[in-house]
Design a protein around this nucleic acid. Sequence first.
DNA 1: CTTGAAAATCGTTCCAC
DNA 2: GTGGAACGATTTTCAAG
Lengths: 142, 142
Amino acid sequence: MTDSADRAIIAHLRRDGRATVAQIAADVSLSPAAVSRRLARLERSGVIRGYTAIIDDTRVGGLEAFIEIRMLGAVDAEQLADLARGIPQILEFYNVAGDPDLLVRLRVDDREELAGVVNQLRRTGLIAGTKTLIVLNSWIRT
Amino acid sequence: MTDSADRAIIAHLRRDGRATVAQIAADVSLSPAAVSRRLARLERSGVIRGYTAIIDDTRVGGLEAFIEIRMLGAVDAEQLADLARGIPQILEFYNVAGDPDLLVRLRVDDREELAGVVNQLRRTGLIAGTKTLIVLNSWIRT
DNA sequence: CTTGAAAATCGTTCCAC
DNA sequence: GTGGAACGATTTTCAAG
């Protein structure tokens, strides 16, 4: 379903999500028409879930944080994944092997909003504990 | 430096990093020309650090992980930030307030490559310990 | 899969406000 | 700062091999 050409296209778009079809085509040695068709297929099939701008959150006034979550024994990760979807501040949700069980990345306007998200999570009654990591500085490979 | 129009443009590009200038312009009630100028400024000034495709990693064979890092006392986070830049598997680097001190997100092809990255970090002699979280499942808000 | 070309859309630049 | 028009580039779709 995804051959090496697809993976090359994906790698290119990972580095530059706004790369033009012509740029990608030159990189992977295919015609622009072929790349256009493959892109449409990768997007339709869900391998490419979307595109996003990488923002320097420290410069637009917000607050970025991670929350580690330990689940109660009988709880399914899917339940918390769905709950987290309903919290708009949560941008990314990871179910991980290790301790903690879950890791979420979020963006809020200020500390009060952060406190609200943490409380919202704890009030679900599905989690044993949380640990919040506030981002002071970061870089993302472009 | 960033007014409400800029923030609207950023919000749009966060949702859809490949949105056309025309689409953004319609959304924020500006002309395409104005959006184009603002975009160039936001990219030049570093508020927009880049663009990337959001990939469903479970469908392209790789392995995604987070590594929590605790630094030794006398070490500066900048040193480790620079070191991490030299490890191509590391995609994102976060200096956080809390325990751990650092959090990195990475992508590798297999467990051996993951072990190599962990060893590479430990061998720097700058860190007191690591904890690796392997991503089993995830979602990202589009 | 490819090439080539047409048609539609898009981005940037320039100019006037 | 803004919008409108013009121009060049890009994407997509088509036909044909």
